[in-house]
C-alpha cells in the first residue's frame, strides 16, 4: 500500500461501457483540484508583485534571478542532493538484498519482514523522526548531522526499492537462473551476468523514486537535522517569516525536478518490462 506502490501498471484496456458524463466531469474537477495548487505556485513565481493576489498584475523573471544568486539556496540544493544520493544508495543495497531474499527463498515470516520494511512509511513520519531523534541524541549521545538524516531517509526509502525490485524479480522466470547454472555459471556469476542486468532498470527506477522522496522529505528530516539545512527545511524556515515570490520560484524548480525524476523512473520501469 501507500506510495510504495509507485506507479501501478494499468491492465490492457478492454471494451469500455458507456461513459456517464458526470463521471468524466467529476474526474476533471478532481484533476483540477490536484493540480490547482501546483499551477498557482508556478504562476505566481512569475508575478511582478510581492503579494500573491488575484489577478496577477505583471510578469517578471526577477524571482528566479534572485533565486539563482541565493547562495543559501544553492548550499541547500547541494546538501539535499548529497543526502538523496547517499540515502538512495543505501536503500538500493538494503532493498535489493531484501527483494532478492523474498523472491528466491521459501521461508516463514515473509509477511512480517514485508511489514517491518514498510512500517516507516505506513506509520506517520513524525514517529520515525522523534524515535530516531531520541535514539541518536538521547540514547547514543550523538550529535545530529548529515549522517543522522541519511540514516532516517535510507530507512523509509528501502521499501520503495524492495517493491520495485521484487515486482521485477517475480516477472523473471526462475529457469533463467537454472539455464545459467546449467551452462556452468556459478551462482555469483549468474547474479552478475543474468539476474542483475535484468533487474537493473527496476533498481534504477526505484533509486530515482527514493532520491525524489528523500529530496522532498521534511517531516522526518526536521527532527534529524544538524546545522546544515536541506532544501525543504530552508524553505520551511523562510515560510515562517512570510511568503515571498522567491519561494514560489524555488517551489517551481522543485516541482520541475520532481517531474523529471518521476518521468525518468517511469521510463526505466517501462524499459525493464519490455526487456
Amino acid at each position: 500500500m501507500n506510495i510504495a506502490n509507485a506507479i501501478p501498471e494499468p491492465m490492457p484496456a478492454g471494451p469500455k461501457g458507456r461513459k456517464p458524463v458526470w463521471l468524466t466531469v467529476a474526474s476533471i474537477i478532481t484533476f483540477l483540484f490536484l493540480y490547482l495548487p501546483l499551477v498557482v505556485v508556478v504562476l505566481y513565481s512569475f508575478s511582478a508583485t510581492k503579494v500573491n493576489a488575484w489577478p496577477i498584475k505583471g510578469y517578471t523573471l526577477d524571482w528566479y534571478r534572485e533565486l539563482f544568486q541565493d547562495e543559501d539556496i544553492w548550499d541547500a540544493v547541494r546538501f539535499s542532493t548529497f543526502i538523496g544520493i547517499v540515502a538512495a544508495s543505501i536503500a538500493v543495497v538494503l532493498g535489493t538484498l531484501t527483494a532478492y531474499a523474498l523472491d528466491r527463498y521459501r521461508f516463514r515470516g515473509k509477511p512480517l519482514i514485508r511489514f517491518a520494511i514498510g512500517m516507516p512509511i505506513v506509520l506517520p513520519g513524525i514517529v520515525t523522526g522523534v524515535a530516531l531523534l531520541a535514539f541518536f541524541t538521547g540514547v547514543l549521545g550523538l550529535n545530529l548531522s548529515r549522517w543522522t538524516i541519511i540514516i532516517g531517509h535510507a530507512t523509509f526509502c528501502t521499501v520503495l526499492i524492495v517493491n520495485n525490485v521484487a515486482a521485477r524479480l517475480s516477472q523473471l522466470p526462475r529457469s533463467l537462473d537454472e539455464a545459467s547454472a546449467d551452462l556452468g555459471a556459478t551462482p555469483l556469476t549468474t547474479f552478475r551476468r543474468i539476474t542483475f542486468p535484468l533487474i537493473r532498470p527496476a533498481i534504477v527506477a526505484g533509486a530515482i523514486l527514493a532520491f525524489t522522496l528523500s529530496f522532498d522529505e521534511i517531516v522526518v528530516t526536521f527532527f534529524l537535522t544538524g546545522r546544515e539545512k536541506t532544501l525543504p527545511l530552508l524553505i520551511w524556515g523562510r515560510l515562517r517569516r512570510g511568503i515571498s515570490p522567491e519561494i514560489n520560484a524555488a517551489a517551481t524548480v522543485i516541482i520541475l525536478v520532481s517531474l523529471v525524476l518521476v518521468l525518468a523512473s517511469y521510463w526505466f520501469t517501462r524499459k525493464s518490462e519490455t526487456n
Partner: peptide, 13 residues
C-alpha cells in the same frame, strides 16, 4: 549435463 528448457529460458538481454 546440459538442459533444453521447456520455455527455452533464453537470456532476453
Amino acid at each position: 549435463v546440459n538442459t533444453v528448457f521447456q520455455n527455452y529460458a533464453l537470456f532476453p538481454h
